[in-house]
Each structure stands twice: as C-alpha cells, then as structure tokens.
Amino acid sequence: MSTRRTTPRPAFLVIPGSVALAFLIIPLLALLWQAPWGDLASIISSPLALDALRLSLVTSLTATAFAAVVGVPLAWLLARDVFPATRLVRAIVIVPLLLPPVVSGVMLLSAFGRRGFVGQYLYSIFGIQLPFTTAGVVLAEAFVAMPFLIITLEGAFRTLDRRYEDAAITLGASSWTVFRRVTIPLIAPSLLAGAVLCWARALGEFGATITFAGNLPGVTQTMPLAVYSALESDRSAAIALSVLLLAVCVGVLVALRGYYLKGSSA
C-alpha cells in the first residue's frame, strides 16, 4: 500500500481497461437515464411488481438455503477426495454452471416433469406436479445456482489448515462437533461469499424458470420474468422493474462491501 514507487500506467493496459469499464458502466447509466422516475413509485408499488419481488426473494433465499444444506456437505466430500473419481464428480457439479439455463430447464422437465423420469412417480403416487408451482421455481433456481456455492466452498475446504480439526479430534471432539465448531467457523467467510454468489444467480434466474415452472404472476413469475413480460406491453414498466432489481443488488453489494469491494483479498 505505502510503496514509494509510482505505479506505471502503460497505454496498452489503460486503453482496453477503460473500454471494459465503459462497457460495464454505459448500460447501467442508460437504464437509469431511461427510467421513468416520475412513475417509478407507482410502478414499483403495483401488486404485480410487489408479487414478483416477494416471490423472487422467497424463492432465491429458499434455493440458497437448500443449496447450503446439501451443497456444503458435497463441497466437503469433494475437497476430501472421498469419491473414486473426484474430477468426474466436480465436472458434473459444474455442468449447470456452463449450460444455457433453458437447457437446464429442459433437463429438469425430463427429470421432474409430469411425464419425467422421477416426476411421473411423484405425479402418479403423490399427485405432486412440480412444474408451474413455486416449488418448481425453487428447484430451477437451486439447480443453476448451487454450483457457485459448491465450487466456492470446495476451494475453502481444500485450503483449510487441517491441523485445527486434528487438534479438536485429539482433544476428543466428535466429528459432528469438529465440523460445526471448527470447520464451519473457519470457512465462514467463504460460506458467505458462496451463498451470496448462489443467491445472486438464483435471483437472476430466467431461462430454467420459464422453461420448467412457467410464467404465472404471484406463483412462478419472478422479477426477471416480470421484466421480460412487461417488455411485451410496457417498456417503461420493464425499466422500472429493472431499476428495482438493480437497487436490490446494489443494496446487497453495499451490505457485503467488506467481502466484495476490498481492493485486495484478505
């Protein structure tokens, strides 16, 4: 931080870097410039917008909680190489991250649709149909967002100093106690970072959701779907909803500035 050397600023880095920055800033400013500021309050407080926002928050947080409960253990198993083919398992975990979300939606339909691989039994035995339900939205969001959490946590588990765990075991702690009282606190910053990445991805999820869960206000129409639907009829409403979503994201970024806005990694 306090070096006397003046940082060199070579043009071959400054110019493309500025292009990158402008590329990211211009759409942001354009959205704010086009926003219907006069009508913003009334559009955002409309039942449709509030329903979509509530639904988005509920489903993305539920999906993140689900991802944490089952994804953290999977990350641990991956980090400790308990699988015969860790690399293969990791590849499977990463697939939804690389796939176009609409393909994830098609896969989910094949698996959990009414005529799906698993879904047909859910439907015939329990009468459960996941598509077109809020649970279906959670499923779609968790499917595409969980890899972010797992990959972040696997890295954390791998770089963890295992002597702390060994010491706890030597002192007679059970493996559950070690995991809960030693391992998790040590990786807490990564858990938060992974959970936020996962949550942000879930909040923004569109393709898998509309493919698997459909588009019904109040039930499956999350904010991104509401924005896209509004584009069909009322562009200024779509922009207003986008501004609202942007505000939510900025709010989270500000709340977690310690993790994401730091100049150097701790």
């Binding site: 339909l109 649709g113 005529r115 509309i210 588009n215 019904l216 896209y228």
Partner: peptide, 21 residues
Amino acid sequence: RPVTFELDVRGVLGKVMADEV
C-alpha cells in the same frame, strides 16, 4: 385459470407437446 402465461404461442404448444399441461 391458466397455470402459465407464455410469451408466445409456441411456448404454449411446447408445454402441450411436453405433456406438462
């Protein structure tokens, strides 16, 4: 009371062909 409001007619047709509705 439709369970989904698709954004074009082929979205509806697709849901029918997939036997989801």
